[in-house]
């Protein structure tokens, strides 16, 4: 169990994390979602005592991180895959971590085996690919067999097989009753792994909800209809006691009926349909809508400058923002 209370981090006059309070509970995967620069990494660094909060506190099973005698046995974290000495072998990198927390040496080979790095255990870690580095970081998080695990963007740099592997690993660890806290900026990724969702934007808490509730609330499903006899079609639907809304592009959207019902209704009145399609707003859209007001770096589309309207506009980083959020 991780508890955050009013956690705040300011860099000069910029607030990276703003009065964040939430709990991460055991036995499930909690997704930590937010756009780039929302303060996810800063929050996670404060959770394991690397950064000092400007205000508020984080407690791990009721204790401050710095009061944990052998913290790797409580909480394992993958924050930065490259946070290992490249000149040291994978085995030795883990060995010195194990020794510092009095973790049996045999665990080193065990976790290397778990993450599939056993064949390269004696190789220097600087020769590792991003995916291998990520696996080594995950191995270091698993080293103390902790009840709490934290992963910052774990799928970054992994190939599809690796992504599949880490998803299953997180689910398995959660099913063992552990607390799993994983950050991502991809809603689609979270939808596949997380049971609970915490969304932040510009350091503020935007949502703290179960995944099921989030999906139900945010994925509106409706049917879209287009017809040359649009006026009549709408009247008929309304007469049947169903709410229909005309939208700008000459189509009608209906929330409370299935496409089968509407198709039969139209056929019964001999109305020609050009379109009858069930629609579902994606979670990605819901997430973008939720964080729209708090995205730090917008990609602006500027029609007057767009040379080729067929291409999406290139993102222009830092526009309208004075300072890059440190390390976020």
């Amino acid at each position: 169990m991780i508890e955050l209370e009013g956690l705040t981090k300011r860099y000069g006059d910029k607030t990276a994390v703003d009065q964040l309070s939430f709990q991460v509970r055991p036995g499930m995967v909690t997704g930590f979602l937010g756009p780039n620069g929302a303060g996810k990494s800063t929050t996670m660094r404060m959770m394991i005592g690397l950064d000092n909060p400007t205000g508020g506190s984080v407690r791990i099973d009721g204790k401050h991180y710095r009061d944990l005698a052998e913290p790797l046995k409580y909480i394992g974290a993958l924050l930065d895959a490259k946070a290992m000495h490249g000149g040291r072998s994978a085995y030795n990198n883990l060995l010195c971590l194990a020794q510092s927390n009095r973790i049996p040496t045999s665990r080193v080979s065990e976790v290397l085996d778990t993450v599939g790095l056993a064949p390269v255990a004696k190789k220097k870690s600087k020769g590792f690919s991003l995916g291998m580095g990520q696996r080594l970081g995950i191995a270091s998080a698993l080293l103390g067999n902790p009840e709490i695990l934290m992963f910052d963007e774990p799928v970054n740099g992994l190939d599809p097989e690796g992504i599949h592997w880490i998803r299953n690993l997180m689910k398995r660890l959660a099913s063992e009753g552990r607390t799993i806290f994983v950050s991502s900026h991809l809603m689609s990724e979270m939808a596949l792994t997380a049971d609970h969702l915490i969304v932040i934007g510009q350091g503020k808490l935007l949502a703290d909800t179960s995944m099921a509730d989030f999906i139900q609330q945010n994925s509106r499903s409706y049917v879209r209809l287009r017809s040359p006899q649009q006026e009549r079609l709408r009247d008929i639907i309304t007469e049947a006691g169903i709410t229909a809304v005309s939208v700008g592009d000459g189509s009608i959207e209906v929330d409370s009926a299935t496409s089968e019902q509407l198709g039969e209704l139209a056929a019964g009145h001999q109305i020609v349909l050009h379109e009858l399609s069930p629609q579902r707003a994606s979670l990605e859209e819901a997430f973008m809508q939720m964080t729209a007001g708090s995205v730090e770096y917008h990609a602006h589309s500027d029609d007057s400058e767009a040379a080729d309207p067929g291409l999406p506009p290139a993102p222009r980083w830092g526009q309208g923002s004075t300072k890059k959020n440190k390390g976020a």
Binding site: R45, I48, G49, L50, Y65, R66, L68, P71, L72, A77, L79, D80, K82, A83, M84, H85, G86, N93, L97, S100, N101, S140
Partner: peptide, 14 residues
């Protein structure tokens, strides 16, 4: 230079 410091301090926060 290696970034190991973050791993080290997470292991030994004292």
């Amino acid at each position: 230079s290696s970034g190991m410091i973050r791993t080290s301090l997470a292991a030994v926060p004292q």
